[in-house]
Amino acid sequence: MTNRLIRRAAALGAAIVLGGGAALAGASPAQAYGCYYGTADVTSPEGGRGATAAGRLCVNEYGNAWLDTNTNNYIKDLKADGYGARAYIYWNQRYTGAIAFDDTSTSGPAKLSWESGGGTRYLWTELWVCLGYARPEDYTSRCSLVVYAS
């Protein structure tokens, strides 16, 4: 299986087990162009919720993607565990980021903002939240898929 298919299967499996709406809604074959909203938490290595994120991700038929600026897109570190929260975007077959960082020394969440720029034929786009220096392509429990669009 390709990495992309593995990520899709993992997201669907997590949605079924955890009841998450973002990945389950995104698994529909009817999903194509438009905007999709999701939230996710990452567990701290010390236990409990370590970070949370929310975002509305949009794609169009021209291969452009962006985080909807009319939505409260954010990442928030929830625990003083030494692992800051970072947000990453998967677009055009590669990861971009961290596009934002938050740790418990800040009073509020960090806002997320991102646009893809030029179009691509690879329309699959994902928003991830990770703790510490973990990255989505590491496939560890310190990252969680927030929302994806295809």
Score class of each variant (00 low, 15 high):
Gly82Gln: 10
Thr106Glu: 14
Cys143His: 11
Ala14Phe: 09
Ala85Asp: 11
Asp77Ser: 03
Thr2Ile: 01
Met1Cys: 06
Arg142His: 11
Tyr122Pro: 01
Ser144Tyr: 03
Gly26Trp: 00
Trp114Ile: 13
Tyr133Ser: 13
Leu18Ile: 01
Thr140Glu: 08
Gly26Thr: 06
Asn73Val: 02
Thr106Cys: 04
Trp91Pro: 01
Gly26Asp: 08
Asn60Lys: 03
Glu115Ala: 10
Leu18His: 08
Gln93Trp: 09
Tyr62Glu: 12
Cys58Lys: 03
Thr69Glu: 12
Gly55Gln: 06
Pro136Asp: 07
Lys76Gly: 02
Leu123Gly: 13
Glu126Tyr: 12
Asp138Asn: 12
Ala53Arg: 04
Ser28Val: 03
Asn3Tyr: 15
Ser44Ile: 09
Ser141Arg: 09
Tyr88Asp: 02
Asn3Asp: 13
Tyr33Thr: 14
Leu127Asp: 02
Arg8Asn: 04
Ser144Asp: 01
Thr106Trp: 08
Ile99Cys: 04
Gly119His: 07
Asp68Ala: 11
Thr71Ser: 15
Asp81Arg: 03
Asp68Glu: 12
Thr120Met: 05
Arg135Leu: 07
Val59Ala: 11
Ala80Gly: 12
Gly108Ser: 14
Gly47Arg: 11
Tyr133Asn: 15
Arg56Gly: 05
Leu67Ala: 06
Val59Arg: 14
Val147Asp: 09
Leu127Met: 08
Asn72Cys: 02
Ala98Thr: 03
Arg7His: 06
Ser141Trp: 02
Ser150His: 05
Ala32Asn: 13
Gly117Arg: 05
Thr43Pro: 01
Thr104His: 00
Thr140Ser: 15
Thr43Gly: 02
Ala85Phe: 05
Ala15His: 06
Tyr88Gly: 00
Val17Phe: 08
Gly55Thr: 03
Thr96Arg: 08
Ala51Lys: 02
Ser113Val: 14
Pro45Lys: 13
Val59Tyr: 00
Arg7Gly: 00
Thr2Lys: 14
Gly20Asp: 14
Ile89Val: 15
Asp103Cys: 01
Gln93Phe: 07
Met1Ile: 01
Ser141Asp: 12
Ser141Pro: 03
Cys143Trp: 08
Ala54Arg: 05
Gly119Val: 05
Val147Arg: 08
Leu12Pro: 00
Lys111Trp: 04
Gly84Gln: 09
Thr69Cys: 00
Trp91Met: 04
Val42Ser: 11
Val42His: 05
Leu78Ser: 11
Ser141Lys: 08
Leu145Thr: 02
Glu115Trp: 07
Ala10Ser: 13
Val17Leu: 11
Ser116Gly: 15
Pro136Ser: 03
Trp66Met: 06
Ala134Gly: 03
Arg86Met: 05
Gly47Trp: 07
Trp91Asn: 15
Pro136Val: 07
Lys76Ala: 13
Tyr139Val: 05
Gly21Met: 12
Ser113Ala: 14
Ala51Leu: 07
Tyr148Ile: 06
Arg121His: 08
Gly26Glu: 06
Ala22Leu: 09
Leu57Arg: 09
Ala85Tyr: 01
Gly97Pro: 09
Arg8Gln: 08
Asn72Gln: 11
Gly117Asn: 07
Leu67Ser: 07
Glu126Leu: 11
Ala85Gly: 11
Gly97Phe: 07
Asn70Phe: 06
Ala134Pro: 02
Ala100Leu: 10
Leu123Glu: 09
Pro136Leu: 10
Ser44Leu: 05
Tyr74Thr: 11
Ala9Leu: 14
Trp128Ser: 00
Ser28Asp: 13
Asp138Thr: 01
Thr120Glu: 05
Arg135Lys: 15
Val17Glu: 10
Asn64Glu: 13
